[in-house]
Every structure is written in structure tokens, then in C-alpha cells.
């Protein structure tokens, strides 16, 4: 579904991606992992067209995404830091995004699901971090697109909400959606993802299933398996 070929990106002298190749398959939940600054977010942003690659190309359903924006109709994206315009109400933001995408949305269902009902008329600036993240999640999931990108979806969530999030993602997986996740919470990744891509210094160091990772690193514990990759590569 998403094919990335020989992707390079540098911000001035800082080489972030150096020849990245990967393939994200339809219907799978792929976790993109890697230490801070390894280029995960840049990769996601390139897929979304927010960052323009220095070299290489990205194909979304066999269409090059360069100078194209229509493919984004197929994508729901959860940005990493949910900092919204502060003097706008939750309900207004929801309505606005709905208006912008002009597509049926299951916002009511999600408002209930994330208990956002009583905050609908609160200005976003007055919401706590956790609730902001809930709004963020709501905005992401409400359109029911076949492709979902979640950048650090767990940040700021309390345990109950986290469980709700996991349940929700699992439901989406059952619908056959393609999901990309980045996260530093390994047990979350372990529970949700069925494919792992490990990025380091702008290159792919591992691309395979969870099982593969464990066998390849001789480690049954996921967190240690990841740590092993790092150690093997002298990071």
C-alpha cells in the first residue's frame, strides 16, 4: 500500500533519512520504532506530504505522492503533539475538521467513547494534556479511513483511556485497516503491532514480524529484543 524507495532527507547538514526502503502492507499494523532522532516522525511526515524528501519517492496505492494531496483523503493521522488553537472550542474544532474533510464522521460515537461530552464547549486552551490527546484521537478516528497513522498515540493518557484506545485500535484492525504506529511504550507496541520496522540513523535495521524479531535477536522479551538491536549496532 505504501512503498518507500531510496528515501533521503536532510535538514541542512543534518542527515535524517539516508536511503530508506520499506513497504507497508495492507491490513497490517506496522510499528515504526527507533531511538529519538532516528527519523520516525520525519518518515511519517514524508508519507503525509508534510515534509518533502530530498531524494527518493513514496508511492501510496501506486501513486507518487509528490505534489499530490488527494491521497490524504484515505489517511487519518494522529499528530505527535496535540497543541490546538487555544481560543476555539472542542465542538468547533470537531465541526471544522468535519467541514474541511467533508465526509461522514462518527464523531458522536467517539465523543461518548472518550467521555468528551461535558468538554465540548470548553476552549481547547483550557483542556488538560490527556483530554487534548483524547480530542486528538477523536479527530483521527472519526472519519473511518482505511489508513491510519498514529504518532505516539499513548502520550498523556491515563490507564483507563489507554485501555479504551487499545480496544478501539483492535476494533479497527478487525475491520482490516492498515495502521502505522510509532511509540516508545514497548508493551503497547507488542500488544498492538504485528509488523515491526526498526529505524536507526535514517536506515532500516529491521523489517519483519514480531516473531521474527524475537527469533532473530534470541530474545523472548520484546523490550530486550529491541535493546539487542541497538547493542548489536553499537548505539
Amino acid at each position: 500500500m505504501v512503498v518507500v524507495q531510496d528515501l533521503h532527507k536532510n535538514f541542512k547538514k543534518n542527515l535524517v533519512l539516508q536511503g530508506l526502503n520499506l513497504n507497508i502492507e495492507i491490513g497490517k499494523t506496522t510499528a515504526i520504532l527507533g531511538p529519538n532522532g532516528s527519523g520516525k516522525t520525519t518518515l511519517i511526515k514524508i508519507i503525509l506530504g508534510m515534509v518533502i524528501p530530498s531524494k527518493g519517492e513514496v508511492k501510496f496505492n501506486d501513486i507518487n505522492i509528490k505534489n499530490n494531496w488527494i491521497y490524504r483523503k484515505e489517511i487519518d493521522y494522529l499528530p505527535q503533539i496535540a497543541d490546538f488553537p487555544s481560543n476555539i472550542k472542542v465542538i468547533e474544532l470537531i465541526n471544522m475538521i468535519k467541514d474541511l474533510r467533508n465526509k461522514p464522521a462518527k464523531d458522536q460515537e467517539l465523543i461518548k467513547y472518550f467521555n468528551l461530552g461535558k468538554y465540548l464547549n470548553t476552549n481547547l486552551g483550557n483542556l488538560s494534556g490527556g483530554y487534548k490527546q483524547k480530542v486528538n484521537l477523536l479527530l483521527t478516528f472519526m472519519f473511518d479511513s482505511p489508513f491510519i497513522i498514529l504518532d505516539e498515540p499513548t502520550s498523556g493518557l491515563d490507564p483507563i483511556s489507554l485501555i479504551k484506545l487499545k480496544d478501539y485500535i483492535k476494533k479497527e484492525q478487525q475491520k482490516g485497516k492498515t495502521i502505522i504506529i510509532t511509540s516508545h511504550v514497548m508493551n503497547f507496541v507488542e500488544e498492538i503491532a504485528n509488523h515491526i520496522i526498526f529505524i536507526l540513523d535514517g536506515k532500516v535495521y529491521f523489517d519483519g514480524s514480531l516473531k521474527n524479531l524475537k527469533t532473530q535477536t534470541n530474545n523472548d522479551d520484546f523490550e530486550h529484543a529491541i535493546a539487542n538491536i541497538l547493542r548489536d549496532n553499537n548505539v
Binding site: L48, G49, M50, W69, I70, Y71, R72, K73, I75, Y77, P79, I81, A82, D83, F84, P85, I97, L100, R101, L139
Partner: peptide, 17 residues
């Protein structure tokens, strides 16, 4: 500068940048 995050939010939407 104030609407940078908001811009980011919009960038991910199917809108011409």
C-alpha cells in the same frame, strides 16, 4: 507562529498545502 500546531493539524488533512 501561534497557529503553527494548527497548521500541522491541517497539513495532514486532505487539503492542498
Amino acid at each position: 507562529y501561534n497557529s503553527q500546531e494548527f497548521t500541522t493539524l491541517l497539513m495532514a488533512q486532505p487539503i492542498k498545502r
